[in-house]
């Protein structure tokens, strides 16, 4: 008799380790959302590997009951690349914070994206260094006061999404730690995509940067300050669904318009996940009168690096079937004594 294995539950993906983030940290919500998503992804627990670098977010693998590798600062994408190439059957997730992924690990992030290794890459962006006690990070806004910038930080913040587009990423999405409906949907989409899927998650650091995203995440403003992207649907938002995005006249910029007499829904831009230019425009919305784009910003799959590698190896085998190391060693000039 074949016994159908019971479908796993969220709890089955929780490890037996005590979670050690600060009480109220946004990481708890992300962990919960992912544990809730995992059973629906149709993967076996033993085939899942979580890889992380260093930082608060990088503790993530310890709390999942899958395989996990907590590596060194910034390098998780490089470890994950090796894991995925060595065993393409594994379901590989990379987790890191903004410091891990965009500062010390910026180089590896760029290259994993351009190679398009088939894995999910989650950036928990809290715009601060948490584990080292509150220094400003590469995503901190200009003027951020921190132990290392008592008079305010001077550098322009980096945009994970724009960087990813520049690096040739084929799947880019954004979500929020607290949005327990949206986040699992984004995780599922990221998992479904074949190739490197980058997900930036705005995550609140309750100790060192509390409320930094309140401007668009607080309950009373979120509907007015966020636009949830849906492929093929008009770019519409607002509590009363009365705002939308169009291209500004005589420019290549987005602008927000109110629906009513002058504009109707049919005037609005329609989201197209395969449109790189639109993705760039959506990613770069950062003025106070424009919403923050969340959801799948860009998705346009191409062949993955791991697949191309295994194709090349297959080809090599076909080109030289039955080649043995002994043949190589005995090739070229040899002589008998």
């Amino acid at each position: 008799m074949n016994v159908q294995p019971e479908k796993l539950k969220a709890n089955d993906f929780a490890s037996d380790q005590e979670v050690r983030w600060c009480p109220g940290c946004g990481d708890y919500a992300i962990l919960k959302a992912l544990q809730r998503t995992m059973p629906d992804l149709g993967v076996k627990k033993e085939e899942v590997v979580f890889v992380s670098g260093i930082g608060c977010a990088a503790r993530f693998p310890y709390y999942m009951s899958t395989f996990g590798f907590h590596t060194i600062h910034g390098r998780a994408p490089a470890f994950a690349t090796g894991i995925k190439i060595a065993n393409p059957d594994l379901d590989v997730w990379v987790v890191g914070g903004d410091g891990d992924m965009l500062s010390i690990g910026g180089n590896h992030l760029i290259h994993v994206l351009r190679r398009n290794v088939n894995l999910q890459l989650l950036i928990f962006n809290n715009e601060i260094y948490g584990l080292t006690k509150g220094q400003y990070s590469p995503t901190s806004r200009i003027g951020t006061r921190s132990p290392s910038t008592p008079s305010g930080s001077l550098e322009s913040p980096i945009s994970a999404v724009q960087l990813a587009l520049g690096a040739g990423a084929r799947f880019i999405a954004r979500s929020l730690d607290t949005d327990q409906k949206h986040l699992p949907m984004v995780f599922s989409r990221a998992h479904k995509h074949t190739g490197t899927s980058l997900v930036e998650i705005f995550q609140n650091c309750i100790v060192y940067n509390d409320g930094v995203f309140d401007g668009f995440t607080a309950k009373d403003v979120s509907a007015e300050k966020q636009i949830k992207l849906e492929d093929g649907k008009p770019l519409i938002y607002g509590k009363d669904r009365n705002k939308g995005l169009i291209i500004k006249k005589n420019s290549l910029e987005l602008t927000s318009v109110e629906l009513g007499e002058k504009y109707t829904e049919s005037d609005l831009l329609v989201h197209n996940e395969k449109d790189r230019t639109l993705a760039n425009l959506l990613a770069s919305m950062d003025s106070p009168d424009l919403p923050v784009a969340v959801g799948v910003i860009y998705c346009d799959p191409i062949e993955t690096y791991d697949q191309l590698i295994s194709d090349q190896e297959k080809q090599a085998n076909e080109d030289k079937p039955n080649l043995k190391i002994n043949d190589i060693i005995n090739s070229g000039y040899t002589w008998k004594v």
């Binding site: 590997v49 890889v51 590798f69 590596t71 060194i72 390098r75 994408p77 490089a78 470890f79 994950a80 690349t81 090796g82 894991i83 190439i85 060595a86 065993n87 594994l90 180089n107 590896h108 760029i110 290259h111 590698i309 090349q312 190896e313 090599a316 085998n317 080109d319 030289k320 079937p321 080649l323 043995k324 190391i325 190589i328």
Partner: peptide, 29 residues
Amino acid sequence: LKSLSVTTFQAEDEIAAICSAIGASYAGS
């Protein structure tokens, strides 16, 4: 020598080179 069960990976830097190799060892290569 790819057909001899050899995968080569030219990484983006020295650090990624070793990290990818450690990742591969972790995965059983």
